[in-house]
Design a binder for these strands. Structure first.
Length: 269
DNA sequence: AGTCACCTGATT
DNA sequence: AATCAGGTGACT
């Protein structure tokens, strides 16, 4: 499931493969991925443009094009975006594909159809992503900023971490792992935590994401769907009933916001 | 703040 | 056949 590290890996791959490439033709096969935009709008606007930049904001992928448009892609749960040698190699789950003038192709596949693809003027992107919070791998994501932001909220720690308007890019897996790392119970109101705890959590988020970006990039060699879980062994995620590697207690699963949260009742109090 | 819809493939 | 997976936005 693509969270920030997987999306970053996709962007790095695309950056190497796609900068300078010209779009010969565009084909949006599933109108639902473009909604409320029309497939024809995306197709006609991107055709003939050159990919000038690949950016990531949170879990959003942004392809900046030469005539002032930006293709915005969100992979959601099962999406993937990658370059192939020939568009005839596209999978059955392909929802949109782009032929490049050099013969290669850009494929957007998404088995569950939850992913999104839209085209905007590049200067509209800031407005489109206005609700996205801080980039956790930016220099400006400081312990002080995080502590102040967290202290202004009484939400359960896990809910706060998954809220993209605070820190952009954490999903169910890395939120749970970061909380385990900082030994914080996922249901604990985040604003009630001591400064030292929040500092630990900040460090855990950054360290975890940095490591995950590297392993995601190395593991993501071939196109296809992202495999289960993260690209490195999780301490708690999807390990209900197994023993915690630190304290040997049984890892638990609870529901938060309708989703599963995994945690260790011994380490996280 | 909590719940549901969006979807389909994997699992039970 | 029923349930679960979860990122996000719309809804109550």
């Amino acid at each position: 499931m693509p969270e920030l590290p997987e999306v970053e890996a996709v962007c790095r791959k695309l950056r190497l493969a796609l900068i300078g490439a010209e779009i010969l033709s565009a084909h949006v096969l599933r109108p639902s991925v473009a909604r409320p935009q029309q497939p024809e709008e995306i197709e006609s606007r991107v055709t003939g443009q050159i990919v000038q930049g690949v950016r990531r904001r949170g879990k959003n992928i942004l392809l900046d094009l030469s005539r002032g448009d930006t293709l915005h892609v969100h992979l959601r749960m099962t999406g993937n975006l990658y370059v192939v040698g020939d568009v005839r190699f596209r999978s059955a789950a392909t929802r949109a594909y782009f032929e490049l003038t050099d013969g290669r192709g850009l494929i957007f596949q998404d088995s569950r159809l939850l992913g999104k693809m839209h085209v905007y003027k590049t200067d509209e992107i800031a407005r489109v992503l206005v609700n996205l919070g801080m980039e956790p791998l930016d220099k400006s994501f400081t312990p002080d900023w995080f502590i102040n932001r967290a202290r202004a909220s009484r939400k359960p720690a896990k809910i706060f971490l998954m809220d993209q308007s605070h820190v952009a890019g954490l999903g169910n897996i890395y939120a749970a792992e970061a909380l385990f790392h900082a030994r914080i119970h996922p249901a604990k109101p985040i604003g009630n935590l001591r400064k030292a705890k929040l500092q630990e959590l900040h460090g855990g988020i950054v360290g975890l994401l940095e490591a995950a970006v590297e392993s995601a990039y190395n593991a993501y060699a071939t196109p296809g769907q992202f495999s289960e879980g993260a690209f490195f062994p999780c301490a708690v995620y999807d390990r209900e009933g197994e023993r915690c590697a630190v304290c040997q207690r049984m890892i638990r699963r609870i529901q938060q916001g309708g989703r599963s949260t995994f945690y260790c009742p011994g380490c996280q109090r």
